[in-house]
Lab assay of single mutants.
Amino acid sequence: MPVRRGHVAPQNTFLDTIIRKFEGQSRKFIIANARVENCAVIYCNDGFCELCGYSRAEVMQRPCTCDFLHGPRTQRRAAAQIAQALLGAEERKVEIAFYRKDGSCFLCLVDVVPVKNEDGAVIMFILNFEVVMEKDMVGSPAHDTNHRGPPTSWLAPGRAKTFRLKLPALLALTARESSVRSGGAGGAGAPGAVVVDVDLTPAAPSSESLALDEVTAMDNHVAGLGPAEERRALVGPGSPPRSAPGQLPSPRAHSLNPDASGSSCSLARTRSRESCASVRRASSADDIEAMRAGVLPPPPRHASTGAMHPLRSGLLNSTSDSDLVRYRTISKIPQITLNFVDLKGDPFLASPTSDREIIAPKIKERTHNVTEKVTQVLSLGADVLPEYKLQAPRIHRWTILHYSPFKAVWDWLILLLVIYTAVFTPYSAAFLLKETEEGPPATECGYACQPLAVVDLIVDIMFIVDILINFRTTYVNANEEVVSHPGRIAVHYFKGWFLIDMVAAIPFDLLI
């Protein structure tokens, strides 16, 4: 008679799926529990143990900040960024110097990925580790590398530091407007667009060049630039800015003055950032001319202004700041037409079709709590990747769950009947059967004279019903998954307890 339990259901295979997918890609990662103190490590794979030199037993239950890997060259700011990422709910990448158990130093890129439950609360953290440099290539500990984003994938490793954006290309926007319009339909740009040429040739750093990471940081200074100062900065030398009595002219307006920039070969870094931020506020060169004239017309309804409409929906549905990093990277690809469009465009503009998908598509409701890094690593669709929660398995109709209350009560009843059979069957065979043979035949009273025979008949009927119930009862397979398919249940029961239950259900007393 089957006594099969499996009270692990309803099970959740999400954690096993993450481990299996990460292991298949030869990654070095740990999984931490966000619900406990210090976000203790609950799993670390073999790749991480080989990377740091510690065994799994030495890593388990330690804080996922990996303070046991810190050393003299470990930056405090990087460690603080990892700790801050564990307090938030967004994906974050941090470069930090770690030390192995043998004392060797290596520069590592740590990717902190939160995993949320159905309520939107962070319950786990996945920390992925990628070695960037070994100890002989690690720089000085005073050099802070965590304020910069990861290198873009479309640049060669040897040319990542030679990417320079020439400031004269930004200063000569109005001069290039006529050349853009003359391109017409034969050019790649839309009317009114501004073409910015980027020099990728390796050259020595000069005062006129600005690194790509500095251009990325310009967006942080746009908020500090007032509207009046932006307007004066875009007017140009024809209309000098008016300053109040006793007030000095704005240095932001002076930063885009061609006369002032041409007199000296070098520009201050602050002026460069502010000038680029001011130019980015204009949607095209037409807006710059309109600002000089004193009238700013409404933005025209053409394809170039609607190019950012799908980007707005993608940004609203993005799951991490990696989408913004990807957008900034692609927006700086050289030799393309940049349409400086305000994100607050007309909502009635139709979304044009684009061959290049900048932001990841909208994630469906079932995966809105899973970050983009987890979705990318697992390579699963929205119909396959579940949320991290207890999910009731989908069972067929008329199927009994093996952990249901009805099955528990039924098993206790069958257990009592088995005990009765084990006690009274030998007793009936030894004593009652002998008395029946010696006594007179009682054929007239039937079952009324033999109450134990009636009980034995009921017990046999219950055993037959138990066999039928076992054909529709779920079970737990070797992978700790609840199986509810009727065919698989029948095959599993035939290979197991079916023969024993059938022999126990045969009414031998009635056959004798």
Rank of each mutant, 00 (worst) to 15 (best):
C64H: 01
D111P: 01
C39W: 15
R92F: 01
D111R: 07
R328A: 11
V138L: 14
A223K: 14
Q11H: 13
S320T: 11
I126D: 01
N257A: 06
P150N: 07
E365V: 14
L315A: 15
E230H: 03
E90A: 14
Q75W: 01
T216S: 14
C49P: 01
V384W: 09
G192Y: 03
A156M: 06
S284I: 12
D342Q: 05
K161G: 06
T162G: 14
A268N: 14
I18A: 05
D259H: 04
T174N: 05
V325D: 14
Q376Y: 11
A223Y: 03
S243W: 04
V41G: 01
S26P: 07
T17L: 13
A9L: 06
V196Y: 04
S354C: 15
A97N: 06
R280L: 10
R5A: 09
V94P: 01
D259A: 07
T270Y: 05
I42M: 07
V8W: 14
G120K: 09
E91W: 13
V180H: 15
G71H: 01
G158W: 13
I333S: 11
S209V: 13
V110L: 11
G192F: 01
G47E: 06
E58R: 01
Q84A: 13
V194Q: 01
R35H: 15
N257D: 14
T216Y: 08
T145P: 13
Q75R: 13
V370D: 07
R312W: 10
F22S: 13
A253P: 14
D102M: 01
E274T: 14
T162I: 05
R164T: 06
C52P: 01
P300Q: 03
N257T: 14
V196F: 01
I82N: 04
S207N: 06
R252V: 09
P334V: 01
V374K: 03
T201A: 10
S153L: 06
V41M: 06
E365S: 07
A80Y: 06
K332C: 04
L248N: 12
R292W: 07
S207L: 06
N12Q: 15
M133H: 14
L167P: 15
A244I: 04
A277M: 12
T367M: 14
L210F: 11
R73C: 08
G183C: 06
P151G: 12
R62A: 09
P240Q: 07
G262H: 15
V374P: 01
T152H: 06
G139S: 15
A382G: 11
L171R: 15
D321I: 08
M218K: 05
V110I: 06
G306F: 07
F163I: 06
P310M: 15
A223W: 05
K166F: 05
Q11C: 14
A78W: 01
V295S: 12
P114V: 01
T371K: 12
F98K: 01
V341N: 07
N146M: 10
V198H: 04
V325G: 14
V132R: 15
V131Y: 06
A142D: 06
F68M: 01
G149R: 09
C108Q: 01
N317T: 08
C105T: 15
A203W: 03
R148S: 14
L248E: 12
V374N: 04
A188L: 06
A83C: 01
V132H: 06
E177L: 06
L296N: 06
S209T: 15
P361A: 05
A156T: 15
P10A: 10
T145C: 05
A169Q: 06
C66D: 01
T152C: 06
V122W: 01
D342N: 07
A382E: 15
N339S: 09
I363R: 14
K166H: 07
V194G: 04
V132P: 15
Q376R: 05
N220W: 06
G238P: 05
W154K: 15
Q25A: 11
Q11I: 09
A172R: 13
D144V: 09
M291R: 15
V222A: 15
P352E: 04
N339W: 01
L155F: 06
N45T: 06
H221Y: 08
A193V: 06
T65H: 10
R326D: 13
G224V: 13
H368I: 11
